[in-house]
């Protein structure tokens, strides 16, 4: 096993670049922006690493978003994400390049990969960080990791092994400006996928679902299930994105990508309108970033009231028709 405790041998920041449906994930760009900031502080550079098939153009794009160097693993055997192939290839890249910090997006695939890779690499990993900093005295990576539904944040470090790994929660950091004139070194890496035991036999994904950056979000909770069609109409009529609480995603009323909360998306709109949600901690952490919150709940003592700027104690079945006719009438 590689000695990951020879701390001084590890240099630079590596960013895992995820992509789907022909696009770099916005979380990967967010991390590139953050990595640039960290690199200035450490006087080091940023290396992006991307795996897939027919993905060479992403190298230049990543450079324009802040990578000094992009390692491209391009192979038909990497056309689909599989844990083992990606883990095997990345483990080799990390062993070879020895970055002191390695950041990945806390997406389903990013977390699937990072959890396995960290054990393989015999190093520490912090999960879905919402704060990513360098500690001035030690130059160590310090990450804020939310627990207990998101209200309490543990400041974590990985002092004695390298790389210091972290997954970063999507939607927390801004996407940096793209500078078309910015160039980076593009390098091809050897692909040896090794043993791959899982096989993806079907994949159904829609591109471009991203409620994290919507300006206005109408969020349906369990109390709004019976009125879900009207909720959609309401959202449409005010040009709003739609989100749901976890139980609605569990019932597949909407895909997981529309779920707001600690195991879903953290939204950051100017306005969130929450219909029929009780205000559980795991949910409320997802609307922390909303500038204004309006809530409708028939229970005068619902917890959500304390997390709303304006709350209405009303049955959604009575309020929604009135809202819709008011909006149509205007």
């Amino acid at each position: 096993m590689q000695d990951t405790t020879q701390v001084s041998e590890f240099k630079g920041i590596m960013v895992y670049l995820e992509h789907s449906a022909g696009q770099l994930e916005s979380v990967s760009l967010e991390i590139l922006g953050k990595a640039r900031e960290l690199a200035e502080r450490l006087a080091t550079d940023v290396t992006g690493v991307i795996l897939g098939y027919d993905i060479r153009e992403f190298g230049e794009e990543a450079a324009q978003f802040g990578a000094d160097r992009v390692l491209v693993a391009d192979s038909p055997s990497l056309a689909q994400y599989t844990t083992e192939a990606f883990c095997n290839v990345l483990a080799e890249v990390v062993r070879d390049r020895k970055p002191e910090i390695f950041l990945l997006g806390a997406t389903h695939d990013g977390r699937d990969l990072a959890g396995r890779l960290a054990v393989r690499l015999n190093t520490g990993l912090t999960a879905h960080a919402v704060q990513v900093d360098i500690e001035p005295e030690t130059n160590l990576l310090v990450c804020g990791v939310p627990g207990f539904g998101g209200s309490i944040v543990a400041r974590c470090k990985c002092p004695r092994s390298r790389p210091q790994m972290a997954t970063v929660r999507p939607g927390i950091f801004p996407v940096p400006e793209r500078r078309p004139q910015r160039k980076g070194a593009i390098e091809t890496v050897q692909v040896n996928t090794g043993q791959v035991r899982t096989k993806v036999v079907e994949r159904s994904v829609k591109a471009g679902v991203d409620i994290a950056r919507a300006e206005i979000v109408v969020i349906a909770g369990r109390g709004a299930v019976t009125y879900f069609d009207s909720v959609r109409k309401f959202a449409d009529s005010i040009g709003s994105a739609i989100g749901v609480t976890r139980p609605l995603a569990d019932r597949e009323l909407m895909p997981r990508d529309y779920q707001v909360g600690s195991t879903g998306i953290a939204v950051t709109p100017k306005l969130a309108i929450v219909l029929g949600a009780s205000g559980a901690a795991h949910f409320v952490s997802g609307i922390r970033g909303a500038k204004t919150v309006i809530s409708v709940n028939k229970d005068p003592d619902a917890d959500i009231n304390a997390d709303a700027d304006y709350f209405v104690v009303e049955d959604i079945g009575r309020l929604l028709p009135a809202l819709l006719s008011k909006l149509e009438g205007k």
Partner: peptide, 15 residues
């Protein structure tokens, strides 16, 4: 491999 330096409570957004 990881250590927890401190715990902080995120201030509740004032509503």
């Amino acid at each position: 491999h990881t250590t927890v330096d401190e715990l902080v409570e995120l201030p509740r957004p004032s509503r």
